[in-house]
Design a protein around this nucleic acid. Sequence first.
DNA 1: TATTGTTATACTCTATAACTATA
DNA 2: TATAGTTATAGAGTATAACAATA
Lengths: 165, 165
Amino acid sequence: MGRADQVGQPERGAGEELGLVDGLVQLSFLIQEVFGRVAASHKMTPIQVRLLGILRDRAPTMLELARFLKLDKSTVSGLIARAERRGLVVRTPSSVDGRVIHVTLTPDGQRLAEVGVEEISRQVNALASRLPATARAQLAALATQLVRNDASGRGFDLAADKTLP
Amino acid sequence: MGRADQVGQPERGAGEELGLVDGLVQLSFLIQEVFGRVAASHKMTPIQVRLLGILRDRAPTMLELARFLKLDKSTVSGLIARAERRGLVVRTPSSVDGRVIHVTLTPDGQRLAEVGVEEISRQVNALASRLPATARAQLAALATQLVRNDASGRGFDLAADKTLP
DNA sequence: TATTGTTATACTCTATAACTATA
DNA sequence: TATAGTTATAGAGTATAACAATA
């Protein structure tokens, strides 16, 4: 029987096949490391890079951001405050509801978002560069199915409001 | 042409196929959420859960831990200090090198590590539960290849010292 | 001198609770 | 009353720099 639950553990050698759980867990750490490296190279944190990525073509409210990121609204307040202090985003009050604030990228933020997304794409593609094209396509399809299966059990956010009020 | 670089962005609908990058990135967030949920359910943080997982059958030194987690050694000092304060790990001085300290799980830590690994395995498996067995096997194999490819470009740690000095 | 680990410091990230303003 | 957002507080996680002890 193959050794199973290597959750979060370092590889012991190149011979054994990782189970589904260990493979996905270790792969997720690899992807998160990419986020960390790209973020650090721009003096940012992973969550700030993720935030910029989300804002590239949306103007969500604070609460929508909190729901999507699964963070408390007070946490998002701090996140946006620091991003605003760095000149990457702006808060825009809604014209239809005086309590609501929309968050958008500044030109600087837009630029940084594009660069970050580009670097992340390059590095993630590099991780898969030794797979043949058919295997990469399979992997993309399988990952998509997992993401879709999970999303269908929860319902989305943010799909509607692409424009500012 | 299919829309490409959705890095870190929410899904817009269930129709489109995510690219390789977006699929892997979003999947990694899903896996990290599992870690977060399991950690929170035991009043822990994801990094502490990962730490326990690593220590299940190893007694690494502080520096080995730092290298494997890609954290500064001072960060690991804090991590271990908090875990020790909670009674989950102990520091054991090396008998052969007076500067070195090995970290091991306490019985409580061992127990919590097993439970955490079990819950994470269950939840990650649940993510893939709607894939047919052949697809799950493919996914495991592909994830393993990515992890192996990356590891081969860096060399491992921690493979040797399973025992206490 | 070099290595291992800790400490001091400063910052980001995070949730909880209490608050303000608007609906 | 209920909702959107902020602030105050406390704690975890993080890196940098300076330090102590050992090799």
